[in-house]
Write a protein that binds this DNA or RNA. Structure first.
Length: 491
RNA sequence: GGCGCGUUCGUCUAGUGGCCUAGGACGCUGCCCUCUCAAGGCGGAGAUCAGGGGUUCGAAUCCCCUACGCGCUACCA
């Protein structure tokens, strides 16, 4: 690689950042970090009609959440500021004027209404839709007359009517387009803002972008961009293009809002770990070998390679993401996990004291391997009983033991009696005390432990019973057994 | 319609001419472990490598055609 690697992520702030966009950002970032280059964020806010005020911040939040940092861009600035296209308008306008004065572009006065109508007729006649180039061949007199009326106008690029534009895609190899098939596309809109094509080329050149890694949907506009570089005498700045596969919805169409939860922020809220999201996204369209699935960030940087990016669009497989998230949760240090759970617990149960925090740390290993997502359902509900003083005992949550009232009573009271004499509640001690009682009881283990589980948690499921009792502690366990016995009498 | 890109288990993928009677992962499923729920361990089903022609001693891998999917075809990006 000759020159410095400089890549950019150039989102348009028109909505929430979805996983496809973020995956593009991720590949760019990985590529930059792999080669020790620069990762730049540039906000392409040239569409004032679709502009969404909060989108930029949401985008940056998404990147930060995943640990993707940028060397130049919003908030950090850089040598080529501004990194908001709306603040670089003069640059694009100059470029457009230059092209017009050199006869490589022209003003077009056609109204949107006429253009729409034209397109309709073209489609009806089954001819390729495209601008009919009316204004390209205006005489000087006609042009002067139009100008005098101060009509709104756009600038269109004069596409060559012959020859081919060829480029070598780093992922797909050589791609060719017939120039004659290209439209005289708009480069400057009537509101003075550039279109993507112009702004992109002007900025990529100005910012010395070396590689353009973007989604596959941009392949058809790449020849336009190359033609623009040439027309602007920026041939030396033409970057290496690499078009990455798209991420599809389950119906195999381009990912969009109608596919539901696709915004990166939604995954954050649903309780996915940024580490697993990062890992998962990296594997969507890229693979290192034939077996490795779990990679940390450093490994990803080390191994990332454009040659291994696939050409095929990928469907976002939530099942696999869920599995991976579980893998990451299980691999967390319990104290780390507890810290990540704490906000959820405080939101749904109560504000935690210092002692509670310690208690939570003790509880965490018991449910760690059962958590799929960091959300209320997965972390709060399963441990709620640890924090509840008065449990709600009912015949409903007693069903699992499949025991009648009498034997349940007997199990709880005998165990309670023995437990009162035990001072140190360790898993081992509890087993030594309780197991013989099971053997004497002639009950099935499921029934026996089910009764105890109910007494201690008022629930049909809980972590293993000895550990649960150990963490609850003697006082709580005895009290709960008393409460359970009292409740039983009323059934 | 035109142009472009793509096509290996349901899904994500490995595979760059012989190691492929196609490997891994998710999901599904059987068994084991087990006090519930998980987690874990060991198995299984699941891809005639889109189809058809070539090239070659030999093709998932190279070439051609066809089909299908997707994308682009906006004063959106």
């Amino acid at each position: 690689m000759g020159k410095e690697v400089r890549v950019r992520y150039a989102p348009s702030p028109t909505g929430l950042p979805h996983v496809g966009n973020i995956r593009t950002a991720l590949f760019n970032w990985l590529f930059a970090r792999h080669y020790g280059g620069k990762f730049i964020v540039r906000i392409e806010d040239t569409d004032r009609a679709r502009y969404v005020d909060t989108a930029t911040e949401a985008m940056l939040d998404g990147l930060r959440w995943l640990g993707i940092d940028w060397d130049e861009g919003p908030q950090v600035g850089g040598l080529y500021a501004s990194y908001f296209q709306s603040e670089r308008l003069p640059l694009y306008q100059q470029a457009a004027s230059k092209l017009v004065s050199e006869g490589k572009a022209y003003y077009c006065y056609c109204t949107p209404e006429r253009l729409d109508k034209m397109r309709e007729t073209q489609i009806a006649a089954k001819t390729p839709p495209g601008y009919d180039r009316t204004c390209r061949s205006l005489s000087d007199a006609q042009r002067a007359a139009l100008e005098k009326q101060s009509l709104p106008c756009v600038v269109r690029f004069k596409c060559p009517s012959n020859g081919k534009t060829v480029f070598n895609d780093a992922i797909r190899g050589q791609v060719e387009f017939e120039n004659a098939l290209l439209d005289d596309f708009i480069i400057l809109k009537s509101d003075g803002y550039p279109t993507y094509h112009l702004a992109n080329v002007v900025d990529d050149a100005a910012m010395h972008i070396s590689h353009v890694l973007r989604a596959e949907e941009w392949i058809p506009s790449t020849p336009k961009h190359i033609l623009l570089y040439e027309a602007l005498d920026l041939k030396d700045h033409v970057p290496i293009f690499a078009h990455m596969p798209m991420i599809l919805g389950p119906d195999k169409s381009k990912l969009s809002k109608r596919h539901g939860a696709i915004a990166i922020t939604a995954y954050k809220e649903e309780g996915y770990l940024p580490e697993s999201m990062f890992n998962f996204l990296a594997l969507l369209g890229w693979a290192y070998d034939d077996k490795t699935e779990i990679f940390d960030c450093q490994e990803l940087i080390k191994y990332f390679d454009l040659n291994k990016v696939s050409k095929t669009a990928a469907i976002f497989n939530v099942d696999k993401l869920n599995w991976m998230n579980g893998m990451y949760i299980r691999s967390l240090e319990p104290t780390d996990l507890a810290a990540r759970m704490q906000p959820l617990v405080e939101e749904h149960i109560k504000k935690l004291t210092i002692q509670d925090v310690q208690y939570l740390q003790d509880i965490t290993p018991l449910i760690q391997e059962r958590i799929k997502l960091l959300n209320k359902e997965n972390v709060v509900e399963p441990i709620r009983f640890f924090f509840t003083d008065k449990l709600e005992y009912s015949t409903d949550n007693l069903k699992a033991s499949k025991l009648e009232k009498e034997p349940t009573q007997k199990v709880i009271s005998t165990v309670k009696e023995r437990l009162q004499t035990l001072n140190e509640f360790s898993d081992k001690n509890l087993e030594i005390i309780i197991k013989p009682l099971l053997e004497q009881s002639s009950l099935k283990p499921g029934q026996f432990y089910g009764a105890l589980r109910w007494a201690v948690s008022a629930s049909e499921v809980s972590p293993p019973i000895y550990s649960t009792m150990r963490v609850l502690g003697k006082e709580r366990v005895i009290n709960r057994m008393q409460d359970a016995l009292a409740a039983l009498k009323t059934f």
